[in-house]
């Protein structure tokens, strides 16, 4: 091999040159200051909600509909305050939320291996892939009737409806996530020796995580919707009072503020779980991967 002595000055030069290039090329990543977050991310939705409430109040003031059909925002607020004073509010919320969360965890435990199985085994995908996608478009209310007949009016029936609603979403999310893994990662993994199960664990699963999380998010939404459908339709004193029953009781008592309150609470819980749990999780994963585009 033709080798000349490496000039130490030259080697130093190279290190310095490289350090300069690295410094010039490196993207500076800065976290958005709190003020900017408040101004750009929090203010717009708060404004939107305020506008909706204002429009609602306006309709009430103009007496567009009679009070039995369109209660004033203050009336809804009063029934919330009453429930709070009676001490029933948190209990009702917890009945529904605990059911939905537990059901969601079951759905997670079933949907994840099912999704992996469908994504990785060709025959299984051809056989049940379309059924899984189809199930997503089937409203979960449809399952309430058979679930009641199979399992009776109890909590198991609620969980069955949640599972039938959420499992397809979670499995489909994982399938989509696996499908979107760049082939380059798989090739790189193979050259590093990650084949078979080791490839699935070290390469496929982490690479599919964003799609999987999107599936979980949707799975939660479906869990919540399914549970509400089940609670509204299947009410029985043994089942305990959840948000769905609250809505149904409002209908039976012609209590319009109560109905509005139940709808708003159902909406709030759905949004809150997404906003407090899934969105931060998704953003954290995307940010770590540099996939979050700053707008």
């Amino acid at each position: 091999m033709a080798s000349t002595e490496t000039n130490p000055v030259k080697a130093d030069d190279l290190a310095g040159l490289e350090a300069g290039l690295d410094a010039l090329d490196t993207v500076q990543i800065r976290r958005t200051p709190v003020r900017e977050v408040l101004l750009k991310k929090v203010l717009p939705p708060v404004l939107a909600v305020t506008l909706v409430v204002a429009a609602w109040q306006l309709l009430v003031t103009l007496k567009v509909a009679d009070e039995g059909k369109l209660p004033a925002p203050s009336a809804v607020w009063d029934s919330l305050a009453t429930m709070w004073m009676e001490g029933t509010l948190l209990g009702i919320l917890w009945t529904s939320v605990s059911r939905a969360l537990l059901g969601f965890l079951f759905a997670l435990a079933i949907g994840t291996p099912l999704g992996l199985f469908v994504a990785r085994v060709g025959v299984v995908r051809t056989a049940i892939g379309p059924i899984l996608s189809g199930l997503q478009s089937l409203p979960s209310v449809a399952w309430v009737a058979p679930a009641v007949l199979w399992l009776g009016l109890n909590d198991s029936m609620m969980y069955a409806v949640i599972l039938l609603g959420a499992v397809p979403s979670i499995a489909n999310g994982l399938v989509a996530g696996v499908d979107q893994v760049p082939p380059l990662f798989l090739r790189a993994g193979r050259t590093l020796g990650a084949t078979g199960l080791r490839g699935a664990w070290h390469i496929v699963m982490p690479a599919a995580l964003p799609g999987y999380l999107a599936g979980l998010k949707q799975g939660w939404a479906f869990s919540w919707r399914s549970l509400m459908a089940a609670e509204i339709i299947a009410s029985s004193p043994d089942l305990g009072l959840g948000l769905g029953q609250l809505l149904e009781n409002g209908r039976n008592n012609f209590d319009m503020p109560g109905i509005f309150l139940a709808i708003i609470l159902i909406l709030l819980v759905g949004v809150a779980v997404d906003l407090l749990f899934f969105s931060p999780l998704e953003r954290a994963v995307l940010r770590r991967r540099g996939l979050l585009v700053k707008g």
């Binding site: 990662f185 050259t191 982490p206 690479a207 994963v285 770590r288 991967r289 540099g290």
Partner: peptide
């Protein structure tokens, strides 16, 4: 043995 391979794209795993 198994050769090491480098691609035109860095192919680094973004989750690590």
């Amino acid at each position: 043995g198994r050769p090491a391979l480098m691609f035109q794209e860095h192919a680094l795993f973004p989750w690590l």
